[in-house]
Design a protein around this nucleic acid. Structure first.
Lengths: 228, 228
DNA sequence: TATTTATGACTGACTAGTCAGTCATAGTCA
DNA sequence: TGACTATGACTGACTAGTCAGTCATAAATA
C-alpha cells in the first residue's frame, strides 16, 4: 500500500514528472503532497524493518533504501530513530483504534457482536503486518515506556473496557453464565492474543486455525454451540 | 575497577584461599570448579542484560562487568554473542522442563491437577525472571529461529500435548463439557500467557491478580465454581 | 532567481571479537 | 616437603568495522 508507483524507482529517476494528465486531485500544493507521500513511504519501510529486526538492530540506511529516499530525508520528518519508532507506532495504531471504535452496530445477540468483532480482528490483525506490530510492541515495550504507555492507553485499556461492557451486557441478558468474567475481560481476549503470537513464532511448526479456535472459545463462554 | 590482585571482587566467591582439605567433596579440580562458577556468573549476568535491553542492544562489556569477569573470558565459554544467547535460553529452560516432566502425581480430579499446575506456574513463572525470559523469546524468536525451534520443541509442543491429555481425561470423566477444547489446548493456557505478558508490560498501569483470573478461567472450563 | 527540499558522503562514537601476555594453580622432581 | 616448571584460565588494550546523525551541495519548485 502507498507503494506509490512513482518514486519507488530509486531516487535516481530523472523524474519524468510530467503530471500532464492532470494527476487528478492535487488538494494541497504538489510539494506538500509529495512530502506526505515520502513520509508514508518512510513509515511503511520503517515498520517493515523494525518488525523484521527489532528496534536496535534496524539500520536507518536500510529504511531509507527501502523507502526509496536518502537517509537525510528521514531527518526532515523525524527527530531521531527513537522518536521515529514512537511516532510509527502511533501512526499505525490510531486508525485501527478509530475503526474499532466505530464498530458496534447494536444488533443481535452479544455473541453476535463479539463474533463480528472477532471476525474483524481475525481479518485485520491475526497473521497480518498489524499482528506483527503487536508482537513488536510486546518485544520493545519495556525499553520504550512511552510506547507501552501509549499502547496501554489507546488500545489495551479501551479494549478491556469495551469487552467488559459487552460481557456485562451478556450477563444481564443471560447469555453469559460466568459472572466473574466481567472482572477479567482479558480472558475473553486471551486466545486472540495467543493466536497473534502463535502465528508470528510457531506457524511453520504447527499452523493454527485461529478462526476455529476462537469459535470454540466463544462456545466455552456462551454455553453450548449455537447452530451455525 | 582497579585490577589489583583480588579481582574476584564480585559477589561470586571472594575465594581467598583454595583450602585444599576442608570443603568435603572437591570432585573436580579447584580450577575447573572456578571456571564453572564463572560460566554461571556469565549466564546469569547475560540473562539480566538481555532481558533488560534485548539481544542487539546488550553490550558484552556490560555482561562482563556484571559478571565480574573480563570480556575475553566470555569467549572462553561461548563462541560469540549469538550462540551465547542461544545457549543461555537452553541453560535456563532445560531444568524447568525437567521439573515439569516430573510433575503429575495422578491424584484427585482433573481440575485439581490443573489447579496445582496453575499454582506452580503462578509461583515459578508469572512475574519472575523466567516470565521475562518468555517475553524475551517472544521478542527475539523471529530473529533466532534456533531459539524459537528449541522453545517450540522443548516447551510449547510438550506443554500443548500435556494439556491436551489432561483435557481429554477431563472430558472422559465428565468434568469438562466442551469437547472441542481438546483440539485447542492453547485456550486453556492462554490466560496464563497473557498474565505473563501483562506483568511485564502493564503491571504499573493496572496490576493484575493473575491467581484470581486463572481461577475464573477454570470456572469457565469446568462449569460452576467448586466450593473453595 | 530565491527559497525550499532532498541528497549522500562524511564524521565520530561505539562495540564485537582478538590475542599477546600474566599469573595462580597443578604437576614434577630432588 | 620445598622448589621449580608447565598449564591454561584470565585479562584488557586493541583492531576493524558499524551506524546514527550532520551538513555542504544539488535539485526542485515558486
Amino acid at each position: 500500500m502507498t507503494k506509490s508507483p512513482t518514486k519507488a524507482a530509486t531516487a535516481k529517476t530523472p523524474k519524468p514528472k510530467p503530471d500532464a494528465g492532470g494527476e487528478a486531485a492535487v488538494p494541497v500544493s504538489n510539494r506538500a503532497m509529495r512530502a506526505a507521500e515520502r513520509r508514508d513511504a518512510i513509515v511503511e519501510a520503517a515498520m517493515e524493518e523494525f518488525i523484521a529486526r527489532g528496534f536496535a538492530a534496524t539500520r536507518l540506511d536500510d529504511i531509507a533504501k527501502r523507502a526509496g529516499v536518502a537517509k537525510g530525508t528521514i531527518y526532515l520528518h523525524f527527530k531521531d530513530k527513537e522518536s521515529m519508532f514512537e511516532e510509527l507506532v502511533r501512526t499505525v495504531i490510531v486508525p485501527v483504534v478509530a475503526r474499532l471504535n466505530a464498530l458496534p452496530p447494536p444488533t443481535g445477540s452479544v455473541r453476535d457482536l463479539i463474533e463480528t468483532f472477532a471476525g474483524n480482528f481475525l481479518k485485520e490483525v491475526i497473521g497480518t503486518r498489524r499482528g506483527d506490530l503487536v508482537r513488536l510492541i510486546v518485544a520493545e515495550g519495556p525499553r520504550f515506556p512511552a510506547v507501552a504507555d501509549f499502547y496501554y492507553r489507546e488500545v489495551v485499556s479501551r479494549g478491556i473496557a469495551g469487552m467488559r461492557a459487552l460481557i456485562e451486557l451478556g450477563i444481564a441478558r443471560g447469555e453469559i453464565r460466568e459472572r466473574d468474567l466481567a472482572r477479567y475481560p482479558q480472558i475473553l481476549v486471551a486466545p486472540a492474543m495467543i493466536a497473534v503470537i502463535w502465528q508470528s513464532l510457531f506457524e511453520r511448526h504447527a499452523p493454527l486455525d485461529a478462526q476455529d479456535m476462537l469459535r470454540v472459545h466463544l462456545d466455552l463462554i456462551f454455553g453450548e454451540r449455537r447452530t451455525t
